[in-house]
């Protein structure tokens, strides 16, 4: 088996509080794939993304890049491997610099001659669909869509291998979200990128990712290929999340699973399975014992004591999908 590009092992990130934003998460990102991370507020998906690019230090566990801990690397070398496009792209651009300066900044930081590399940056602008006129504007003078493209261009100037996009379509109208997703896909092909896409929009995730990880209150609850996870979610939370997305076509509507209760505060996560307070299929064991990740199909794992599984002995008495309607 080839070495994964990124290997996350037992990663926990604890903020003062204590707030266990990410709690014992392990997963791999293979070179060239697109991994989606979905979850609601407090799930820790953004913290996970920021920890991979070393904006947060792991409290325990580690993030390994090609088999080596990210913190053992030369800082500048590591920055050329992994980049992040922030959720709020407009405010991720330093407000007093022009777009040209913003695009030169990564080259300057890495001591690369601007004259030598500028042609490449101009080519990138073309590929991203940014007109040259934008170069002499300030961030507050460009549209939201352009700010997003500038942020993507900046991240790609250093030719990273991993690009993390935090909520790439949040706040975009549907009429232009397709453009952005097409762009990301095109860039992946032309630059051989590996993607980690963090989003709460399940339609987007289903459409553009190869594999999906579902997080809830800092825990990874399910991971698997996009096809298998969307068609046969094993964790009741994943199933509810998928069913919660509204569908236009009345004939294609899935039975809704309306979860009861609120998302608990990550400052006081419930014991046992974190999801047990809202789960329709909760049993005594769920309230005390933290379920470990377990394989349920090829490349499909979930952390649930009683997952929805079509044909396993243990799963036979589990409630069928959609029974909580």
């Amino acid at each position: 088996m080839p070495l994964p590009l990124v290997a996350i092992r037992n990663l926990s990130v604890v903020f003062p509080g204590p707030l266990r934003a990410v709690d014992d998460v392990s997963l791999d990102i293979a070179a060239g794939e697109t991994l989606g991370v979905v979850g609601e507020s407090g799930s820790g998906k953004s913290t996970l993304a920021k920890t991979i690019v070393d904006l947060h230090r792991p409290t325990s566990g580690q993030v390994m890049f090609e088999g080596q801990s990210s913190q053992a690397f030369d800082r500048l070398w590591f920055r050329r491997q992994a980049q992040l496009v922030f959720q709020d792209a407009a405010s991720s651009l330093s407000p007093r610099l022009t777009v040209r300066q913003l695009l030169e900044e990564p080259l300057r930081i890495h001591g690369l001659a601007i004259g030598e590399h500028w042609a490449g940056v101009r080519g990138l602008l073309g590929a991203i669909g940014l007109p040259a006129q934008v170069l002499d504007k300030y961030p507050h003078q460009v549209s939201g869509g352009q700010a997003r493209r500038i942020a993507i261009a900046r991240a790609l100037v250093l030719k990273p291998r991993l690009l993390i996009a935090d909520e790439p379509t949040a706040g975009l109208d549907v009429s232009i979200q397709g453009d952005l997703l097409n762009l990301l896909r095109g860039l992946q092909q032309s630059f051989g990128l590996t993607y980690l896409i963090v989003s709460h929009n399940l339609n987007v995730i289903r459409r553009v990712t190869d594999r999906v990880a579902v997080m809830y209150l800092g825990k990874l609850v399910e991971i698997g290929s996009t096809k298998s996870l969307f068609s046969r979610p094993a964790h009741p939370y994943a199933a509810a999340l998928i069913a919660a997305g509204p569908v236009i076509d009345p004939l294609r509507r899935r039975p809704r699973i309306v979860l009861r209760g609120e998302i608990p505060s990550p400052l006081r996560p419930p014991p046992g399975c974190r999801f047990h307070t809202r789960c329709h299929f909760v049993r005594d064991r769920c309230r005390v014992e933290v379920p470990p990740m377990a394989r349920i199909a090829e490349g499909h794992e979930t952390a649930c004591h009683f997952p929805f599984v079509a044909s396993s002995e243990e799963g036979s008495d589990a409630a069928p999908l959609g029974a909580g309607v």
């Binding site: 609601e40 507020s41 709460h200 399940l202 509810a240 999340l241 919660a244 997305g245 509204p246 809704r256 309306v258 979860l259 609120e262 998302i263 809202r278």
Partner: peptide
């Protein structure tokens, strides 16, 4: 709102 909470409000 989050998706699962949105589903609650819509219902």
């Amino acid at each position: 709102l989050d998706v699962t909470i949105e589903a609650q409000i819509v219902s």
